[in-house]
Design a binder for these strands. Structure first.
Length: 266
DNA sequence: ATGGTGGCATCGCCA
């Protein structure tokens, strides 16, 4: 039995509905996790997406900012929406579904970007990001009888080859040591597997995001791996492939992030 | 060389 899950920071689901539809027609993942939907729950384009086969949709929305959604072809029950840092942001939602004989919990995250200055004493947004990551360290991949998948825009590129220049990025928010070590701690304390790096060696460049500010994003290729797919160790052996759909960065009115899909064969 | 672009709560803030 095959099963696929996609994560995609869509940067406004209402504005980008045409490319979400384009992606669905092409890839048809079983579950599609979106971040930065940038709308309230009642503004989410439920009907067109349900008509395309995603009958089960749960979402944590917010007016204008953040917001995460899980769209599924298979029945899904909402598990939890954690208010990280207690600030009322819509940055997490989790759900449970069944696939064959397995029960799987899926977490969808949008971690704060953290602003420009990597110093919490002058930039509270950086402090918020570090506190958010600290709180994620409590999240366990393995709970009795339930496997886990964690996806989302984690806004941290943890490895050297997750950025175009490790040396030039060390003081840039998303790749500072305090962030990359923090995210590594979240993975190690929680017992999570980095599925993208299980499939693509750590020595190879791997990006999921290219800035809007480059004159020619493709020629410059100054990308970062900010989007991630993790799982509990029991699912690792069943990973069949990882696809980073780089061409979506060149679609009409693109998001600055591209979809990443993990396919399992159980 | 310290901007550049894009979205929305739109003329400021966030990414």
């Amino acid at each position: 039995m095959s099963f696929s899950v996609t994560t995609w920071n869509i940067n406004s689901v209402r504005l980008r509905l045409p490319i979400v539809e384009q992606f669905i027609v092409r890839e048809k993942p079983d579950i599609l996790c979106l971040q930065e939907i940038k709308c309230r729950a009642e503004e989410f384009p439920l009907e067109p997406l349900q008509k395309m086969g995603y009958e089960h949709i749960i979402l944590h929305g917010q007016k204008g900012y953040h917001g995460v959604a899980i769209l599924s072809k298979v029945p899904l029950t909402e598990d939890h929406r954690q208010d990280y840092c207690g600030v009322g942001d819509a940055r997490h939602i989790s759900a449970i579904f069944e696939r064959g004989s397995r029960r799987i919990r899926i977490h969808n995250f949008y971690v704060p970007a953290g602003g420009d200055e990597p110093d919490r004493s002058v930039n509270p947004k950086f402090g918020h990001k570090l506190d958010f990551v600290e709180e994620m360290k409590a999240l366990k991949a393995s709970t009795p009888g339930v496997s886990s998948i964690l996806v989302g825009d984690l806004n941290i590129a943890p490895l050297e080859h997750d950025v175009w220049s490790h040396k030039q990025m060390l003081k840039i928010v998303s790749h500072t040591p305090v962030e990359t070590e923090g995210l590594t701690d979240v993975m190690e304390k929680g017992g999570w597997l980095d599925l993208m790096r299980q499939h693509v060696p750590a020595s190879e460049k791997l990006y999921t995001w290219w800035s809007y500010r480059a004159k020619d994003w493709e020629a410059a290729d100054r990308g970062r791996r900010l989007d991630h797919i993790w799982s509990s160790p029991d699912l690792g052996p069943f990973l069949e492939k990882i696809e980073v759909l780089k061409e979506a960065r060149g679609w009409n009115r693109p998001s600055d992030h591209v979809p990443v899909t993990a396919t399992f064969r159980f």
